[in-house]
Amino acid sequence: MSTGPGPRPRTVTVPVEGELDHESCEELVRAVTVHLAARPQVEVLRLDCAGMSLCDSMGLSALLQIRRDVDAAGGRLRLDHRPAHLERLLRLTGTADYLLADRPD
């Protein structure tokens, strides 16, 4: 959770555990959708990737979908504790800048 001066940003953290692949990606997107719907005032959605053991192309597709959903809800997406394999995937696919950038205004 981020702390600091001024009002604390309203933050939700969703852990991503295990393999993010064609079997698990829908579940993650759904979980995020539920969070966004339940807390319309959320400003920052954090995906904690520390426990992510694998991310395949469907997993990446899910992250891109989540980015779109968070943008549409007016929030910001953060991918925390990115393992090396995820960094590599984001770099290879040229999606790092898009996924990690602040929302374009």
């Binding site: 290879l92 040229g94 999606t95 898009y98």
Partner: peptide, 14 residues
């Protein structure tokens, strides 16, 4: 060579 995927990002770069 290195470039971004196509079909989902606003711009494709390579």
């Amino acid at each position: 060579t290195l470039g971004s995927i196509v079909g989902v990002l606003p711009e494709a770069t390579t």
